[in-house]
Simulated assay, not measured.
Amino acid sequence: MRIVLVLLMLLPASHMRAAEGCVDVWFTRNLIMDRAGYCFGSPLGQALFDNSDCTGAQIQLDPASQALVSRIRALEAQHGCQIDTSRHSLDIEDIAFRRVLRDLPIRQDGQWGCLGWTAAETPLYDGYTEPLGAIGQVTPGDYVLFEHEGVAGGNWVYVTVHHPSWGAFKSAGWMYWTDRMPCASEAG
């Protein structure tokens, strides 16, 4: 166990983020496939997605979904992503929120944190296209992590929210913001 901890401390931070990013984009890609009716055969796919309403292994994706899947596959190839699909779980803190999203986020290489939200309560939504459904919120003092690509001119971004000082995970969703982020301080 000690050797593993020492090795993890020696790995560059970008490698750690790349591994997390691979899990993130794998889940997004397969959530798209699940919604289109794909029947999962791997233990991981069956553990994370509901095969009760699947239609087969050969599915038709709409053009927007196909473009998103192709883009994710290119990211996975670029980063050499390899997910062990013999597992039965993934460590994705916002998985419950991701399941209800209408518009799915794409993980980016960098990340940025707002340490101490200073604005009023701000709603988080299930997508960035109408109709918007509130699924969470950012409240004053929260820490907000930005690690997904912005859309619609960068004004919409998918965020995860934590209790202050990177405490427990709290919420997630799409946020609309046009001004400078109201943060006590920033990291990243």
Rank of each mutant, 00 (worst) to 15 (best):
residue 142 D to L: 05
residue 111 Q to V: 06
residue 125 Y to Q: 01
residue 13 A to Q: 14
residue 159 V to I: 02
residue 90 L to G: 02
residue 119 A to E: 09
residue 173 G to R: 00
residue 106 I to F: 05
residue 116 G to Y: 06
residue 109 D to M: 10
residue 46 Q to S: 10
residue 102 R to F: 01
residue 57 A to N: 12
residue 14 S to N: 15
residue 182 P to M: 07
residue 36 A to P: 04
residue 28 T to A: 12
residue 40 F to Y: 07
residue 19 A to N: 11
residue 159 V to E: 00
residue 69 V to C: 02
residue 127 G to C: 04
residue 73 R to Q: 14
residue 2 R to T: 14
residue 17 R to M: 13
residue 152 A to E: 13
residue 184 A to V: 07
residue 156 W to R: 01
residue 117 W to I: 06
residue 99 R to S: 10
residue 158 Y to M: 06
residue 33 M to R: 13
residue 182 P to C: 04
residue 144 V to H: 05
residue 73 R to M: 13
residue 137 Q to D: 10
residue 13 A to P: 10
residue 64 A to S: 11
residue 63 P to T: 06
residue 122 T to W: 10
residue 134 A to L: 05
residue 71 R to V: 01
residue 150 G to Y: 07
residue 147 E to A: 14
residue 54 C to W: 02
residue 31 L to P: 01
residue 117 W to Y: 14
residue 87 R to A: 12
residue 10 L to A: 15
residue 94 D to S: 11
residue 109 D to N: 10
residue 105 P to T: 09
residue 111 Q to G: 10
residue 44 L to P: 08
residue 172 A to W: 00
residue 40 F to K: 06
residue 157 V to C: 02
residue 75 L to D: 09
residue 141 G to Q: 05
residue 43 P to Y: 07
residue 136 G to Y: 01
residue 111 Q to W: 12
residue 65 S to A: 10
residue 102 R to M: 06
residue 154 G to C: 01
residue 42 S to G: 08
residue 155 N to W: 01
residue 145 L to Q: 11
residue 131 P to M: 03
residue 42 S to P: 02
residue 79 H to V: 01
residue 183 C to E: 03
residue 102 R to S: 03
residue 135 I to G: 10
residue 46 Q to D: 00
residue 40 F to E: 03
residue 2 R to G: 15
residue 162 H to Y: 12
residue 150 G to W: 00
residue 71 R to H: 06
residue 112 W to N: 06
residue 32 I to Y: 07
residue 187 A to E: 08
residue 24 D to Y: 07
residue 166 W to S: 03
residue 57 A to K: 14
residue 50 D to C: 04
residue 31 L to D: 09
residue 2 R to I: 13
residue 34 D to S: 15
residue 175 M to C: 08
residue 36 A to Y: 05
residue 118 T to Y: 04
residue 52 S to M: 08
residue 117 W to Q: 12
residue 112 W to M: 03
residue 78 Q to F: 08
residue 14 S to D: 15
residue 150 G to H: 02
residue 17 R to Y: 12
residue 113 G to N: 13
residue 137 Q to R: 14
residue 119 A to G: 11
residue 44 L to S: 13
residue 16 M to G: 13
residue 66 Q to S: 11
residue 134 A to F: 03
residue 92 I to H: 00
residue 52 S to R: 15
residue 37 G to V: 02
residue 154 G to E: 01
